[in-house]
Design a protein around this nucleic acid. Structure first.
Length: 417
DNA sequence: TGACGTCAAGATCCG
DNA sequence: CGGATCTTGACGTCA
């Protein structure tokens, strides 16, 4: 019953993937980028270990142009020691990693060259998971593809192509229902013919339900039957709709109150969250479902979020302070409930300035006179409308970097919004 | 031909 | 000059 997140970390400095344009993809540039990206992946794995996050999707952008002829580098060999080292960390951290090619990897296209490139892309994904020495429970999740005006024929083509996939791909390939073409019912039928396990996605099912009626739990039960022992725990995707946006846009954060009743129905299922705030929601959901109840976990979370709360909801700030006073309790749900409510509020000029002043307090005894003057000038400018909140915060961040205020630099104050 | 989705590169604007 | 903001690229399908 692990909970994980996809590809990127929010709120950590200097943990970013790089890429380049095709025109600039020289061998030297690519080697540079791959080396950088592997270090980034390693930092993410380290973060997951520290935070006891045991499920993680590795980005398809790890190797720029990884499945394109533009990239001729034999990267599993060139970077063998890096892959081995990272793979070792993944194993010792008991992290289940996976990958998920995007919507443009289409196995059942009418265009053979598209199909060939899709196969190459799957081989690329398998090569990464193999280079990391992960076992067959590390999956590659794929959608079935397009319809082309004839769904049965399109499904037939998927099955035909599936059969001729190389074994290193087949042993990892998992298929998922999507939100415009293939329902969970369709995907289960494809699984019957291919043997590929099925990932159920709750939001996709909401947007594109099957003809046969069934709730989440029913379809999760059906999907479970497609997972064999060697495939590891059943996996599902879980996300919530962003209420402000259109179609199947993922929400900024997971609403914990909606998630918990869903999660509590599950039995031995690994849950991949698809959400904009990535690791932040993963940690929230983990903290609300774990059995080792240590207040320290919540105190650490509070240290990261507190100025984001303060700048928009001083009364929420006070509520959480009170909530965390009793060190024998573990009020995770209440904590995140207040946190979510506070972060959803729109700051006022007054609450923002209150935040600036609290943060400035960290260096008010070390700054020079001119720095102090500039801070007050910027704050005044913000109050009168000639300066944006962002520029004041940028300046505070500059000070935090100069005076190495770790507490602030680790927090989300400069990073969220 | 543009929208779709996603991210960061690359270009351009601004003080 | 550096920082902020806008546009482009890479992918395939579908209207």
């Amino acid at each position: 019953m692990s909970i994980g997140y996809a590809c990127l970390i929010v709120g950590l400095r200097d943990v970013e993937y790089k890429t380049c344009r095709m025109d600039n993809a020289s061998e030297t540039r690519l080697i540079e980028l791959i080396g950088h990206n592997l270090l980034t992946l390693e930092k993410m794995i380290d973060y997951n270990i520290t935070n006891q996050i045991q499920m993680f999707r590795i980005t398809s952008d790890l190797i720029p142009f990884g499945s394109s002829p533009v990239n001729q580098i034999d990267w599993p060999i060139v970077f063998k020691s890096d892959f081995n080292r990272i793979g070792e960390k993944i194993r010792s951290g008991l992290i289940r990693v996976s990958m998920h090619p995007g919507q443009y990897t289409v196995l059942n296209s009418l265009d053979d060259s598209v199909v060939d490139r899709a196969i190459q892309d799957l081989v690329y994904h398998a090569k990464i998971l193999d280079a990391l020495n992960t076992d067959p429970s590390s999956k590659i999740i794929l959608h079935v593809g397009g319809i082309y005006g004839d769904k049965p024929a399109a499904i037939d083509r998927f099955v035909t192509t599936y059969v001729r996939l190389p074994d290193e791909v087949k042993r990892r390939l998992v298929i998922e229902n999507d939100d415009r073409s293939y329902t969970i019912e369709d995907v289960l039928a494809v699984s019957k013919r291919t043997g590929a396990p099925v990932v159920y996605d709750n939001l996709h099912n909401l947007l594109l339900p099957s003809e046969q009626e069934g709730d989440d739990l029913f379809w999760i039960g059906e999907a479970k039957k497609t997972w064999k022992e060697i495939d590891g725990n059943q996996k599902i995707h879980y996300s919530q709709q962003d209420p402000a946006k259109q179609n199947g846009s993922h929400s900024q954060s997971i609403q914990i109150e909606k998630f918990l009743p869903f999660y509590q129905l599950l039995d031995h299922v690994d849950v991949m969250l698809e959400v904009k705030d990535k690791n932040l929601s993963a940690i929230k959901c983990i903290n609300c479902t774990r059995s080792d109840h240590k207040i320290k976990l919540l105190e650490n979370e509070w240290s990261l979020y507190k100025y984001n709360v303060l700048e928009r909801d001083p009364s929420g700030y006070q509520k959480i302070r009170v909530l965390l006073k009793d060190k024998d309790q573990y009020p995770a749900l209440d904590f995140y409930r207040i946190l979510e409510k506070s972060l959803a509020k729109t700051p006022t000029i007054g609450t923002m300035i209150n935040g600036f002043q609290h943060v400035f307090g960290y260096f008010k005894n070390q700054v020079s006179e001119s720095e102090r003057a500039l801070f007050f000038k910027k704050t005044d400018g913000y109050q009168t409308g000639s300066e944006t909140a962002g520029s004041v915060k940028k300046y505070l961040e500059k000070l935090a970097l100069k005076y190495q205020e770790e507490y602030l630099l680790k927090s989300y104050y400069f990073i969220l919004n």
